[in-house]
Write a protein that binds this DNA or RNA. Structure first.
Length: 267
DNA sequence: GCGCAGGTAATCT
DNA sequence: AGATTACCTGCG
């Protein structure tokens, strides 16, 4: 069991911040969560002031500490916010406890390809169907997110059961390219932002928004600034249509997350 | 039944 | 370059 103050790690806020699709409440048990990431899973409990992760200190050090981005100092980032920016100041306060999860690039690529024109619950359903149908079996009836080869092997017929709609060919193409070695997405971790962006945009069904989400949540490129309809709305309504993320160069993605969470919850 | 949901790509002007 | 539109599917 590893305990962390909720002000540093708030699972409920993270789950609602739209960056991951495999974090869910356990029904009937208040404050209890299940978190799935690639081929790992974790149970957790949230009380008034604390988040308790149900794993050993070793498991925490080996994986979850990095996954939750716990070594980054978010307080110093919040301190960089323009004090004259009332919206962002309030957003950061409201979002206390949100962190940018360091998720698996492949899982993020597929999840955000699926995300287009879908609601968050619908995205979750798709990701869960893919995992249950094609992902490696784990204890307790859980499933890993399927690897590229597993989705490629499923083929169009297999994927047809997962409510992908017109995104099905996009998912299949990405799986085939990644499985065939044509797109070595894990080796892209060491590429500079420009090259990584270019590679991501080369996938059919990946445009600027999806590419930026994959950069931010899958490759830890904390300065990526995805603009979706919510961010667009915030910029239009609170910044008269103009917001320059380069003001927060180096951590704009965290600022984006605050704007998104506050804008979606309070606007 | 109809419009829409955290976008993209093709097809206009 | 910028604007417009179709696209699967599930839900209100």
């Amino acid at each position: 069991m590893v305990c962390i103050e909720k002000e540093r790690l708030d699972l409920e806020k993270i789950a609602e911040s739209g960056q991951c699709f495999r974090m869910s409440r356990i029904e009937g048990e208040t404050g209890r969560w299940r978190i799935q990431a690639a081929d790992k899973f974790l149970f957790a409990r949230e009380s008034a002031g604390e988040t308790m992760l149900d794993c050993s200190r070793d498991e925490f050090d080996a994986f979850w500490k990095d996954y939750f981005d716990l070594e980054r100092d978010y307080e110093s980032i919040v301190a960089e916010i323009d004090p004259g920016d009332a919206f962002l100041t309030a957003a950061a306060e409201y979002s206390r406890g949100i962190r940018i999860l360091r998720q698996d690039p492949w899982e993020m690529l597929i999840s955000f390809i699926i995300s287009q024109r879908k609601s968050i619950p619908a995205i979750r359903v798709c990701v869960e169907k893919l995992s249950e149908a094609f992902g490696k079996k784990l204890p307790q009836g859980l499933h890993a997110f399927p690897k590229p080869e597993e989705l490629a092997a499923a083929g169009a017929e297999g994927l047809a059961t997962c409510s992908l709609g017109y995104r099905l060919p996009y998912v299949l193409a990405a799986a085939e390219r990644a499985a065939g070695g044509e797109a070595d997405i894990y080796s892209w971790k060491k590429l500079p932002n420009e090259e990584l962006t270019e590679n991501l945009l080369s996938f059919p069904g990946v445009g600027p928004k999806v590419a930026n989400c994959v950069m931010l949540f899958g490759y830890g490129r904390i300065d990526a600034f995805p603009v979706d309809v919510w961010i667009r709305r915030v910029i239009d309504e609170k910044y008269a249509g103009r917001f320059d993320p380069s003001r927060y160069s180096g951590f704009a993605g965290i600022i984006q997350q605050y704007m998104f969470y506050y804008g979606r919850g309070k606007l």
